[in-house]
Design a protein around this nucleic acid. Structure first.
Lengths: 120, 120
DNA sequence: TTGACACAGAAGTAATTACTTATATATTGA
DNA sequence: TCAATATATAAGTAATTACTTCTGTGTCAA
């Protein structure tokens, strides 16, 4: 089969942008047209033009994180999360490091105990 | 205490670069000096100058993904993986979508059967 | 002291990215 | 057919990023 060897680079690069993450987040609920996605991104991330979104969608397409099908004069985008597995696999190798470390570093170890770092 | 609210943006941005991921990967084995990291990155990713690496290290520092301590005339970098949890948490929300094969693009894709439609 | 080492930072540049406006293409509906 | 809608693509620009070389600072070793 085709499989098109999605390089992990493309995935990491694709999800580095908040607008593109917002698109993926929106698609978790199901297919969406470009206009729907535009409204969502403009509200949730920042205002941008339709072509700007179209270019983000192209990046997502090239990373094989979305797929399109035509529906009348609209294009419905759907989520294809599989390439995210590479990202997930990579971060998963750090699971073991989430809790400790940094006592050895002498600095500020006041926060780790309970996870009070989450801010935002 | 400020606690510096590590924005998820910084984490996603930091791990988007293969050289910076290589640094983190190297640090999983323990602290490393800048020269050691430089050798590793040059071999594993691509050749670059020492200041180039220092700038990557600054990005990682600002994302709170590494910490430094002085050891003689060297600086030892150590891993601080906690901010990666935000990345991990985000990708984890896609676990349920990894299996879904939407090769039936002409038919019914998306429409995740379990989540239904959650609108905006 | 001096000199080599180990690094960070500055300044400049090249490459890349994220937008913009304008336009082209397909589709629907009158 | 024509106009409106929905979207992609083109072309240009601004903003950001990733490098480079050069320099400054602290540390060790003699």
């Amino acid at each position: 089969m085709v499989s098109a060897t999605t390089s992990p680079e493309l995935s990491f690069q694709a999800v580095a942008d908040p607008a593109r993450r917002a698109v993926l987040d929106a698609l978790r609920a199901g297919e969406r047209s470009v206009n729907e996605l535009l409204a969502r991104v403009c509200e949730a991330v920042k205002p941008m033009s339709q072509p700007a979104l179209s270019q983000h969608l192209r990046v997502l397409r090239e990373a094989r994180l979305v797929e399109v099908r035509k529906d009348g004069r609209r294009r419905l985008y759907g989520l294809r999360a599989e390439p995210l597995r590479e990202v997930a696999d990579w971060v998963a190798t750090y699971d073991a490091f989430w809790e400790e470390r940094l006592d050895a570093l002498g600095g500020h170890l006041g926060r780790v105990a309970k996870g009070g770092d989450r801010g935002a």
